[in-house]
């Protein structure tokens, strides 16, 4: 049985041919430059807190892509890691008053620690069963947070999360400058995801995604690799959730809700699985859309995002990014062959 729910795009990995390698290097550098410029210009173009939301959701979607696109595991409970980290980050920031990156680091570690038992139990299942087990655990964590009012504030959430940053008032109170500090953490997280995907470990993950039995026959302990990927992914989701908590200044139960898990999967699939860039594209689209619809007073956001999801799944299985790169690649090949003839 195939473990991916949706067809994942096949990326051609590294090539021996030096010319091909160089052209790929150039393409990657250009992409990276465009991505970084867009990231740095974002708060000039839109309201900075919304820019921050896009960045946080982008990393969250990347963390899901690491599992869904590169390992073939659909987690339907990633809110557990995003939300737990948000709470732990918020609590550390409130109780200790430490600089916010330290609080986020604490939240991220908490998410990874929680991911060990959850991952250990869920990677033994494949396909829809994996998704259901992760959902069940996420619901358990939601329930605990809801009941444990002394710590989490229950339905009121955690209020007044400070964004302390070494007493630098500009960063602490101006969301525009805050963005530039916090987004560095997001970029660090995205870089880590890129490193993981393009490592020997990433290669093994992709072999597991494509053919788990073969990977085992080659001597790879598939469950161990899946668990490692799960914990790393939870760490990235936690990093994103921590940034989100600090940026908003409060943490609500919404961060642990199953709809949050669903939303991030939606972003990943719309943007394009197994591409890394797809997550940020999907996140930007959904966050901007929600923002635009909310400010216009329209409250049927779900209908719009749901429709986009259906269209993408039915017509563009590779997602926005996957489809775009496919078309560019086709165009490039057409130009090359025309030049030759």
């Amino acid at each position: 049985m195939s473990e991916t729910v949706l067809e994942s795009p096949k990326e051609t990995r590294y090539l021996l041919d030096p010319a091909a390698r160089r052209s790929r290097m150039i393409r990657r550098t250009v992409l990276l430059a465009v991505g970084l410029i867009a990231t740095f210009l974002l708060p000039w173009m839109i309201y900075p807190p919304v820019a921050m939301d896009i960045a946080a959701w982008a990393l969250f979607a990347i963390s899901v892509d690491l599992l869904l696109g590169y390992t073939g595991l659909l987690s339907f409970g990633h809110a557990a890691f995003w939300g737990s980290s948000a709470y732990v980050t918020g609590l550390i920031a409130i109780k200790s008053g430490l600089p916010f990156p330290v609080a986020i680091l604490g939240g991220m570690l908490a998410a990874m620690i929680i991911a060990v038992p959850i991952g250990w139990l869920s990677v033994r299942r494949a396909g829809i069963y994996f998704a259901m087990v992760t959902l069940a655990f996420a619901q358990m964590i939601y329930f605990v947070a809801n009941q444990w009012k002394d710590v989490t504030g229950g339905e009121n959430g955690l209020q007044g999360v400070p964004s302390n940053f070494f007493g630098i008032k500009l960063v602490e109170s101006d969301s525009f400058y805050f963005y530039y500090v916090a987004v560095l953490l997001i970029i660090l997280g995205a870089w880590a995801a890129w490193r993981i995907v393009h490592s020997p470990f990433g290669r093994v993950l992709q072999s597991i995604r494509d053919n788990p039995a073969r990977a085992r026959a080659l001597g790879y302990d598939v469950e161990k690799y899946k668990l490692a990927a799960f914990v790393l992914s939870a760490g990235l989701a936690g990093l994103a959730g921590g940034v989100f908590a600090i940026s908003h200044g409060f943490v609500s139960l919404q961060e642990l809700d199953w709809t949050t898990s669903g939303k991030v999967v939606l972003m990943t699939v719309i943007g394009g699985m197994g591409t890394l860039w797809g997550g940020p594209v999907g996140a930007a689209l959904i966050v901007l859309l929600e923002d635009a619809l909310a400010t216009s007073g329209f409250d049927g956001i779900g209908i719009i995002t749901g429709s986009i999801f259906i269209v993408v799944v039915l017509l563009f299985r590779r997602g926005i990014w996957g489809t775009a790169t496919l078309l560019i690649e086709k165009a490039r090949k057409a130009i090359v062959s025309r030049k030759r003839s």
Binding site: R13, S199, G202, R214, Y225
Partner: peptide
């Protein structure tokens, strides 16, 4: 086999298996 990997990549994966290199997510491929 893994359809979108080259023959060489298959062999690399097999040869790396006993070395433990496969778990090193911080190294370049």
């Amino acid at each position: 086999l893994f359809d979108n990997m080259t023959a060489l990549e298959h062999l690399e994966l097999a040869l790396a298996s006993p070395t433990g290199l496969g778990l090193k997510f911080w190294r370049s491929e």
